[in-house]
Design a protein around this nucleic acid. Structure first.
Lengths: 192, 192, 192, 192
DNA sequence: TATGAATGAGTATTCATTCAT
DNA sequence: TATGAATGAATACTCATTCAT
């Protein structure tokens, strides 16, 4: 088997965990090494620098994420179900990977141009996913003829906040909302 | 007269700028001192540590921000206009202070419990602002009887994404949306 | 008193000792700091990098050295005495500073362009010192009309080897030569 | 056939080149391996350590060098021609191997006792070569009855400086000296 | 025997914090 | 009270050496 590729993957998964927990600056290369069960020097056999590990981790993570979401969405026919599946996929990612997504977007900016570009491209692919669903819904005359891009912005932002609330600020005494509750807001609007 | 209070304020404003530009870890205490036109040691006459400066800056920034939004909103009578004013206030903040808000939320986590609590409290106050508008709208029978908290989550998230798109990923060839366009999505929903 | 200038000097003197003992690569910045009785960080308040410390030490050492030699030579009237004084000055330097001169010339090459240029310039000033003596001797009709530059090369090289032998490879059973013995070789030649 | 001996030689030749270019500390074992077209691990099949490679390279280089000089000198009958041949041999070595000789002498000190001893022994053999020529010249009544050892020091040092000037600090506008010019200084002296 | 992937000891450098002035 | 010179803890990265294949 391709042992080199495997070890590279191990390091990226470890980086994913450590960067996700500590952010770029607080994370120590030696911690990533420990987590990956390799020596500190080994990291540098596979990556040029801490920055480069971050960069490749972002690429790797984004790819994993987009694959997952895309798959879930394409399994569905109904556009409303597709939107629900998107929320579900995001939820799973957030549970699994903590706030890595935030770190992608937040710290990428300061780390270097290339990371920034990767992240922007990923963001656009995510927006496109929703745009496509909306366009399909418009064509199928399920949705009004609204601007698909504008909606995707609102929706993605809304979903993020909704999930952050549920997952990260969870309090036992808080009312729990279903995905339907949430989606209905976007479907029906609030104006009487 | 209150020279001490004034200098503290100067430092906080400088911290706001530097942390906003560089994030917590990349920001240097000496840069904040330079920006505030004080000596490096002076910072430590007013604050216990870099973390404490960050903490106090977050409190200060949030207070400023909430004051501004609250004021704008209470100037209006019409609930829909109030929502627009919220978007406007957020937009101004984002233009003026860059992504400081993200830094609040993102890095606060790693910096310490107290900051985290401050940020959560602020987030809740922001959500309450919207909640109150929605409840008023429901009472006035302008809005449906939806869950005000759930809406505030969706709305705040959506606004954030909308503004990030406009301000940070602005591209000359991109379609420009009005705040009305955006608000209408939430008012009318997308389902036919 | 100019404390800053003083401390800079202390560091350079420490660097002189440590680089002289260990060479550029083996020398540790922390050892220079210890030798200078300052903290490691202090070095970086006065110099940009280890390279820069080396560079400045070379400048400093060369200046000291040339001052000394020049002074000794100008005290004398007789050209042959001047040559002897040069040998004496070199000898004192070699005893006092070990093989720092070799390190100047040897390692300067690898460390950076600027150091290299400083060292070359110093070498030329040293050659000029001898050249001037020779030219004076020719004018005074004490010396033959030989090429002064060529002689200075031969003389400086010869002196170096002579002193290295005496100082560094000293063995108790070895015949000891006087400076006169040595100088006479150059004065009279070896051909019958 | 003697493949082992051959590969050892290849490594030493590569070491000669790399150490000559970079000096002991800057030189990387991996670069020597690459230059010798062997794996990094292979170096350690033939030598105990980087230091040992250096040590053996010094021995090897010195042996090559002394063989060459000795041969050239013994081809000649005339003592003055022998001195010229020595200069020529040194010149060729300096052109071919850069400043490896300096590195021998300079860095040997820091690397270990054994290398130091090898280098000293080699230096003495070199001095002996010249000494023997001088003694021969004295016997043949071509040279004055000077101290042969003292002369060899002066001569070897002078030659080194002369060649360094010609080869390493060569400048197109500089006067070019012949070996005769140089030798004549030593033969005739400078005193009128 | 030959290899190069893996390792971790070792070191330059940064920067929050202290404290003498 | 205000300062900035001095400090050393902390950490990315290099490279000689080992060892499984």
């Amino acid at each position: 088997m391709n042992n080199r590729e495997e070890k590279r993957r191990d390091i990226l998964i470890a980086a994913f965990k450590i960067f996700g927990r500590d952010g770029f600056y607080k994370a120590k290369v030696s911690d990533i090494a420990k987590e990956a069960n390799v020596g500190k020097g080994t990291i540098y056999e596979y990556f040029e620098s801490k920055e480069n590990v971050f960069e490749e981790m972002v690429k790797f993570g984004i790819e994993q994420y987009l694959k997952k979401v895309t798959l879930l969405i394409y399994e569905e026919d109904d556009v409303i179900e597709k939107l629900k599946k998107y929320v579900l996929a995001e939820k799973e990612m957030m549970i699994e990977y903590g706030n890595i997504a935030n770190i992608f977007f937040q710290e990428a900016d300061k780390i270097g141009k290339e990371v920034r570009e990767i992240v922007i491209k990923a963001r656009n692919r995510k927006l496109s996913l929703i745009e496509d669903i909306v366009k399909e819904g418009i064509k199928k005359e399920i949705f009004k003829n609204i601007d698909a891009y504008l909606f995707s912005l609102a929706f993605i932002g809304g979903v993020h906040q909704f999930l952050v609330d549920e997952i990260r600020f969870f309090a036992s005494n808080k009312k729990v909302y279903t995905i339907e509750d949430f989606i209905n807001l976007f479907l029906n609007g609030i104006k009487k």
